[in-house]
Amino acid sequence: MLEVQDLRKRFGDKVALDGVGFAVRPGEMFGFVGANGAGKTTTMRIVMGVLDADSGEVRLDGKPLTYDSRRRFGYMPEERGLYQKMKVAEQVEYFGRLHGLGRAAARDAAGELIERLGISGRRDDAVETLSLGNQQRVQLAVALVHSPSVLVLDEPFSGLDPIAVDALADVLKDRCSSGVPVVFSSHQLELVEQLCDSVGIISGGRMVASGPVDELRDTEGRTLLKVVVRGASPGWADGLTGEVTTDGDRQVLLIESGDDQEILRSAVNAGEVEHFGRQRPTLAEIFREAVA
């Protein structure tokens, strides 16, 4: 289990992290979301030891991280960096070897990842000749080549086309199901919602919510009542405090649940009720509310 405990970090007067903490279990995919400047990158750089925290700790299976435990991590920094003049396959293999793989193992692992991430046609090209998205795939291959025991990826999906997004999601799910804790940050909330077992929302250097996606949807944000009525005359809901939108001959009412039976009665009177039920907030809605 990867545990981040009460990290604090200032840059001069600016407080970047003000007690950030979360835990990722083996085989869990953790989505790290937050507005620009919220502190995601700073947290991940501290986890990787690129930055030192002013206080707080990062533990793996109960033990503070050391150089050797971090060496088995897979890391994708926010600012991508590769040797521009080095060939794709050679570069991925080189990083495999730096992380301790033997020559043959590194070559095999590099070949397989390059294949899976869909850049096998470019394996002998210099990185600088690849498009940005393809360079990003190389960057991912570099982070994954040594079968890391923990994955820390800073915005791994940004800049990828939908096919690459699927390929990467597949690879991550694979790694996850083999028991690896995966942490990644992203601004694509639908993707996070779809992929992650849990999420952490950070705002202004503090965790404002974290936990399994399902639990968050139950406990965070407002649960609204959604009523869809067909063929109702406009203004049927004038007495109610919800929001009405019109979609063809359907009228959709979103309303804070309260006197639900009363609402249902007026809906039935107004027209044909197509849908009546509680609607849990999406991650995006929880996010907006949490960081507001």
């Binding site: 030891g49 150089y67 920094p77 600012e79 960096g81 992380h99």
Partner: peptide, 12 residues
């Protein structure tokens, strides 16, 4: 090129 961040995740 910031590659040093991932290099230092692999070697001292």
């Amino acid at each position: 090129s910031r590659i040093v961040e991932i290099l230092l995740a692999a070697v001292r």
